[in-house]
């Protein structure tokens, strides 16, 4: 630099940070992409049926949900506090006449002691009432969801039974064949569309499964289900057809 103005330009070396940033960025993006893509795949593979006598089985999200928690026991201890609070306001009235005839020194501790519990009670009371109401609400909700879950489960069973009734397997059906269908319903219970998600490889078998659903046609019982529950579970669901009772 100092020898000639025309020397080769000195370029500050900035290598480490860009390289690190590049590798991190690309690694992160590749990781995110692969993770996202495989997670959608995993959901399906997990939905394998437990071997059972029934051949058709509804694969549904609700099966993986934990059962609703029992109602919280919080309600009982809190209802006690308002009961305790009631007797306290009483002494407030009594001491007031007494301090007047007496010398000044005596009444001081008395008024001090009284007002204190009062503010203590009211927030406690309020909180207790609020909590009791809240827990009641929670309880109701839990019951509602529990009943909805039960209903959903019973409908799953119903759909299974109906579809099985209409399912006539082709002679080419073998144990271990699996066809997964995606079924779309509308709130009246009618089947709108049936598509094969995963083919068994045997067209006749796939066809028989589709036919079974199409013959069943509609599940009008689903109208009893609350709308939100319907949207969640039955708007689109998957049905796995898997014969296991065949001899070969």
């Amino acid at each position: 630099m100092s020898t000639s103005v025309y020397a080769k330009p000195v370029i500050p070396r900035i290598i480490f940070r860009p390289a690190l940033a590049t590798v991190l960025l690309h690694g992160l993006i590749i990781y995110l992409l692969t993770v996202n893509w495989t997670s959608t795949e995993r959901e399906i593979t997990r939905a394998k049926p437990v071997p059972q006598v029934i051949n058709a089985r509804l694969v549904d999200v609700s099966e993986f949900k934990p059962t609703p928690k029992p109602k919280p026991p919080a309600a009982k201890p809190k209802t006690k506090t308002p009961a305790v609070a009631k007797p306290k306001p009483e002494p407030k009235v009594e001491p007031k006449p007494t301090p007047k005839p007496q010398p000044k020194v005596v009444p001081k501790p008395a008024p001090k002691a009284e007002p204190k519990p009062e503010p203590r009670i009211s927030p406690n009371e309020l909180a207790a009432i609020a909590r009791a109401e809240l827990s009641e609400l929670l309880e109701q909700e839990a019951q509602a969801t529990a009943s909805a879950d039960e209903m959903a489960a019973s409908f799953i069973g119903l759909i299974q039974q109906t579809v099985i009734r209409y399912w006539s397997r082709p002679p080419s059906a073998r144990n271990g064949m699996e066809t997964e269908l995606a079924i779309q319903l509308i709130p009246t219970g009618d089947v709108v569309s049936v598509t094969v998600i995963r083919s068994s490889g045997n067209t006749a078998f796939d066809r028989s499964a589709i036919n079974a659903v199409e013959k069943a046609g509609a599940f009008p019982e689903l109208q009893q289900l609350p709308n939100a529950e319907f949207e969640k579970q039955f708007r689109r669901f998957r049905l796995l057809f898997k014969p296991e009772d065949l001899r070969y």
Binding site: P12, I14, I15, R17, P18, A19, A21, T22, V23, L25, H26
Partner: peptide, 14 residues
Amino acid sequence: SMASWYMIVNRYVY
């Protein structure tokens, strides 16, 4: 992409 990101950060620092 990797080369261009390298250069982006390099230029940014520079």
